[in-house]
Simulated assay, not measured.
Amino acid sequence: MNPGGSALSWRRWVRSAGYAWAGIAHTYRAQPNFRIEVWAGAVALGLAVGLRVPPTPILLACALVLGLELLNTALEAAVDLASPEWQPLAKVAKDAAAGAVLVASLGALLVGVVELGPPLLRLMTF
């Protein structure tokens, strides 16, 4: 094994992570729904911590929604690049990607209700 190969792989990973963070930052700046989802997730995680509810289901739901929103943004950009004029199949692709985000968001909402609802109700009844 080449001793320098490990450092090279590490540098490559750091560079790739930088590109990924650039994509996340762009999406945060350019997509209002992504910002809403980030802050809704932060509130849900804060509630989970405050209510002493295990945060794992909330974290997974947030990761799913945010990951799909990033993919939706990427797909929209790629479709716009490939097909600048309106095309029915481009609309199908964009609508389906947006639908995936919607389905994940509704699932995340249900996770929040199931995980956070009972402790919130107990807190409100005292």
Rank of each mutant, 00 (worst) to 15 (best):
P84H: 02
L70D: 01
A77Q: 06
G67Y: 05
V79R: 03
P57R: 07
V79E: 04
P84C: 09
D80E: 13
A82I: 05
L59K: 10
E85Q: 12
A74G: 02
L59V: 15
W86M: 14
L81T: 14
I58G: 02
A82Q: 11
A82V: 08
V65Y: 09
E85G: 07
E85A: 15
A61Y: 07
E76S: 06
A61D: 04
A78R: 13
L68Q: 12
N72P: 09
P84M: 03
L60H: 00
T73D: 13
G67I: 03
P84S: 06
A63P: 09
L59S: 08
A61N: 07
L60K: 09
N72T: 04
I58F: 08
L64D: 06
E76Y: 04
L75I: 12
L60V: 15
L75G: 11
P57H: 01
A63N: 11
E69Q: 11
C62F: 11
P55R: 02
I58K: 01
L75V: 15
A78G: 01
P55Q: 06
L75Y: 05
P84Q: 06
T56V: 14
L59G: 08
P55V: 14
S83I: 09
V79C: 07
P55I: 13
N72E: 13
D80G: 05
T73G: 02
C62T: 12
A77K: 10
L70M: 11
P84A: 09
A61R: 00
D80T: 12
V65N: 01
P55G: 04
L81I: 05
L75H: 04
L71C: 12
E69F: 00
C62P: 01
C62I: 15
E85C: 14
T73H: 12
E76D: 07
W86P: 14
L81G: 03
P57Y: 00
G67C: 08
W86A: 13
P57C: 00
A61T: 07
L68R: 03
E76C: 12
W86D: 15
L60A: 13
L64K: 13
A74S: 05
T56F: 03
L68W: 00
L60N: 04
L60Y: 08
A77M: 09
V65P: 00
V65E: 10
C62K: 00
T56I: 11
V65S: 03
V65W: 03
A63W: 14
V79P: 08
E69K: 11
L68G: 00
S83H: 09
A77I: 12
L70I: 09
L66Q: 00
L81W: 15
P84D: 02
P84W: 02
E85H: 14
P84I: 10
A78V: 07
L59A: 01
W86N: 15
D80S: 10
L70W: 01
C62M: 15
T56E: 12
E69G: 07
N72Q: 10
A82M: 14
A74V: 13
L64Q: 07
C62R: 03
E85W: 14
L66V: 08
L64T: 15
L59N: 10
E76I: 08
L81R: 14
P57K: 08
D80K: 10
L71G: 04
D80H: 04
A61S: 06
V79I: 15
A77W: 04
N72M: 14
V79M: 06
L75C: 03
P55Y: 03
